[in-house]
Amino acid sequence: MLELFNIHTYYGEIEALKGINLKVEEGEIVTLIGANGAGKTTLLKTISGLLTHTSGEIRFLDEKISGLKAHQITKYGIVQVPEGRKIFPLLTVKENLEIGAYRKKNGVKENLEKVYQLFPVLKEREKQLGATLSGGEQQMLAIGRGLMAEPKILMLDEPSMGLAPILVEKIFQIIKEINQQGTTILLVEQNAYQALNIAARGYVLETGKIVLSDTAKNLLNNEAVKKAYLGK
């Protein structure tokens, strides 16, 4: 479904991605794990069009999407939920969700209902400003906002960051649920254990290169991964 061939991306002079090859099949949860600064966010931003890669090619459903701008890429059904939630602080919860469906002409109401069903707390807070939500609620809003666009693939950047353990559990549960309803997921996480637990496959990113790729099960049992990312 989503394929990356030999992607190089620069941050100014620094080469942040050094030839990434990656593949996500329809219906999968694929996770990308790695330390801070490994290039995980850069990779997502490159796919979503916020950053442009200098060489290589990105294909989505056999169509080349390299070089398109972020607002054009959303048209294909590729939606990124950014790191740190990035809720619009001065829009209400409902407005945040509506903006998520900016590209949609119809079906907005139905999608809104679906999101409220998934996150009833958002319905309760409908009229509150985004800034007034707690961290967990903001993460739910960020995911809900992403779902409003009816993505074919949802790319989540560190959804568990800064959340209490009980909420982390819940967020991963919800990601799994979203996947079961038919949305493909590319999940970037520092919480490698949780991520690998719900994923089918995983990639390990180190200093801009993919050093390992395998099924999630194998990665969980891989000695190097255990040592570096699972703290065992």
């Binding site: 979503s48 069009g49 916020l50 701008k69 972020a70 607002h71 959303t74 048209k75 939606v79 990124q80 950014p82 990035k86 619009f88 602080p89 001065l90 829009l91 407005e95 509506e98 903006i99 998520g100 900016y102 590209r103 906002r145 666009a149």
Partner: peptide, 24 residues
Amino acid sequence: TKLGKATRAVSQDRETASLMGINV
């Protein structure tokens, strides 16, 4: 209006607004 909301979104966070499909 939809465009009005998009205008507010862009003024609050340009990068995220473009992720919503808004042509900034």
